[in-house]
């Protein structure tokens, strides 16, 4: 394996959790809901995925459990913001704080344990091809799932009736309600989908990226995923490009540290966060790009007047 191949492979592994978490949030925001709890759902996914994999010995059961944990956390959020019309920003924060605390509590007995790793895809013949073999046919399964989810979301949002309803609910919930669409149910479903992909993103961290449990191991990735959704102007294609760009920045920092250029490691570690701020500035200064796709009802609660 050449050095370039290795770099591309690590960039993909660094990007996949961002893509997984962000693609779910994109759907959530398209339906008009702002869920700031990604970090909390993700870290709960990471810890429960790791724990179940340890107990059962199956990494796949861990992945399944992580999805459930993400969905469970997201349903808490949905109940609060949709049924009880609580403030979405504050509720999202509470989900994040709760998730970080709860994961620390659950994970305290798993700290330092060697973890299980999800295997790589290996198709005899294809995976051994030169140059493209490992890259196209030799990734871990979640990479393919993340790409499939992105394509699926793009297709559903743009080409199907369900996608149209989701977008209508996000653009103007009063009109959607008047047309007879179940606004709150649609939003519940979207929020649960977002919870599932955040859980998957967490499982990716604790079962693939660094197969062990470390407290707060999400390290702000949930927040970066949120920024990515804004950066993508709510378009799945751009979201994927953004996720790989950010994964690249993350790896750039790691490689530069390894090369020992005399740059303080903390400066390189802060790169993804600084890059996030810069990306948000770039996209926000472009009014045309940023306004055109913003779901008009984003972050507003909906109470049907019966």
């Amino acid at each position: 394996m050449s050095a370039y191949e290795a770099i591309i492979l690590t960039v993909i592994t660094a990007s996949t959790p961002l893509l997984l978490a962000a693609i779910g949030e994109l759907v959530v925001e398209r339906s008009g809901v702002l869920n700031l709890g990604i970090e909390g759902m993700m870290v709960m996914g990471a810890v429960s995925g790791f724990a179940i994999a340890q107990v059962t010995g199956s990494a796949w059961l861990g992945v399944l459990m992580a999805m459930f944990a993400g969905i469970a956390m997201s349903l808490l959020f949905a109940f609060m913001t949709q049924t009880l019309v609580a403030n979405q920003v504050a509720t999202g924060l509470s989900i994040t704080l709760l998730g970080l605390g709860l994961s620390g509590l659950i994970g305290s007995s798993f700290v330092g344990m060697p973890g299980l790793k999800l295997g790589y895809l290996n198709i005899p013949g294809l995976s051994d091809l030169p140059v493209v073999g490992k890259l196209v046919f030799g990734q871990d399964p979640l990479v393919y799932i993340s790409i499939a989810l992105t394509i699926g979301v793009a297709y559903v949002l743009k080409r199907t009736r369900i996608g149209l309803i989701i977008r209508a609910v996000g653009q103007n919930h009063d009109s959607a309600h008047a047309l007879g669409y179940p606004v709150i149910k649609v939003r519940y479903a979207c929020i649960a989908f977002g919870g599932m992909t955040s859980g998957l993103a967490g499982a990716y961290l604790s079962l693939v990226y660094t197969p062990q449990w470390i407290e707060n191991m999400t390290a702000g990735r949930g927040w970066i995923a949120l920024a990515l959704v804004v950066f993508s102007t709510w378009l799945p294609g751009r979201l994927a490009a953004g996720a790989y760009l950010f994964g690249g920045v993350w790896i750039l920092g790691l490689y530069a540290q390894g090369m020992g250029l005399g740059i303080p490691s903390q400066l390189l570690s802060s790169l993804p966060y600084v890059a996030t701020i810069l990306a948000l500035i770039v996209i926000s200064t472009n009014r045309r790009l940023s306004v055109i796709n913003t779901p008009a009802s984003l972050g507003q609660g909906f109470v049907p007047d019966r």
Binding site: L76, M80, L84, V85, A86, N87, A90, T91, L93, S94, I95, L97, L98, G99, L100, G101, L102, G104, L105, S108, V303
Partner: peptide
């Protein structure tokens, strides 16, 4: 017990306060 319990209690508290605040404007 892990000292993370403090963080869990704090998170729960914010969660419940937001939940109960619904009662200020609405009857359930």
């Amino acid at each position: 017990i892990s000292d993370k319990t403090a963080q869990v209690f704090q998170g729960m508290l914010l969660f419940f306060i937001l939940m109960c605040d619904t009662l200020i404007h609405y009857r359930v």
